[in-house]
């Protein structure tokens, strides 16, 4: 589904990603953990071309997004993304946030788009907020709308960039619940997070990233209970 081959990424002279390779299978839930500054968000953002890579190749469903001739908009509509700071369109109501991509990018009719949008808002438990504007919602509600907005494009894979890091603690649960549902339905997901409970419960595979390298990967059981690498052990001892 996503195939990352030997990518390297520089910010100026600083090498943030060092020769990373990764294969993600359909329906797999990959959780990326690691200290801040380890490059995990950058890595995720490379997977839909929001960041360019300096070297290496990334394929999404056979399309090489690192190739300069590839039309990134076509690839991006198949790759949903949820941001740490939600990034809902501030000037649009909740329902418009969820329909605008369907109408403008997928060229659906307004009625069709709204029907789908209401289904998705129902799924994330926010149908009654359809007419509200983002700033009238709590952080947790905004993030659930953002998930609905991404799902409205019928993506084949969903990327989550620390989706609960900007939330008040009591709102983390509602967002994780929606994500768990998605995983259960078989959505392919790549999740950058500090929520180790979520990683353990939902992840098929956990990647530990440090200083731009994949230090260790394995099942949640392997990583959390029997980490092999010293750096992984050190990191886990600090946060668990």
């Amino acid at each position: 589904m996503i195939s990352v081959k030997n990518i390297t990424k520089y910010f100026g002279r600083h090498e943030v990603l060092k020769d990373i390779s990764l294969e993600i299978a359909p329906q797999e839930v990959v959780v990326i953990i690691g200290p801040s500054g380890s490059g995990k968000s950058t890595f995720l953002r490379c997977m839909n071309g929001l960041e360019s890579v300096s070297k290496g190749e990334i394929f999404v469903n056979q399309a090489e997004i690192t190739h300069s001739k590839t039309n990134l908009s076509l690839v991006r509509k198949e790759v949903g993304m949820v941001f740490q700071r939600f990034n809902l369109f501030q000037h649009l109501s909740v329902i418009e946030n969820v329909t605008i991509g369907q109408v403008q990018v997928l060229k659906k009719s307004k009625q069709e788009a709204e029907k789908r949008a209401y289904e998705l808002l129902d799924k994330v438990g926010l149908q009654e907020k359809a007419k509200a504007y983002p700033e009238q919602l709590s952080g947790g509600q905004q993030q659930r709308v953002a998930i609905a907005r991404a799902l409205a494009m019928n993506p084949i894979v969903m990327l989550f960039d620390e989706p609960t890091s900007a939330l008040d603690p009591e709102m983390v649960g509602e967002v994780l619940a929606v994500m768990k549902d998605l995983a259960r339905e078989g959505m392919t997901m790549v999740v950058v997070t500090h929520e180790m409970g979520f990683a353990r419960e939902v992840g098929d595979r956990v990647l530990f990233l440090d200083e731009g390298r994949i230090v260790e990967q394995g099942t949640p059981e392997q990583i959390f209970n029997h980490p092999q690498e010293e750096r992984t052990q050190l990191f886990l001892s600090k946060i668990l």
């Binding site: 990034n87 369109f89 501030q90 991509g101």
Partner: peptide, 19 residues
């Protein structure tokens, strides 16, 4: 973040600017 969100749902540069 508004631009990134628009691009992430597949909008072109023009659509992102316009809408």
């Amino acid at each position: 973040g508004q631009t990134e969100a628009a691009m992430s749902i597949g909008m072109t540069n023009f659509q992102t600017m316009r809408f």
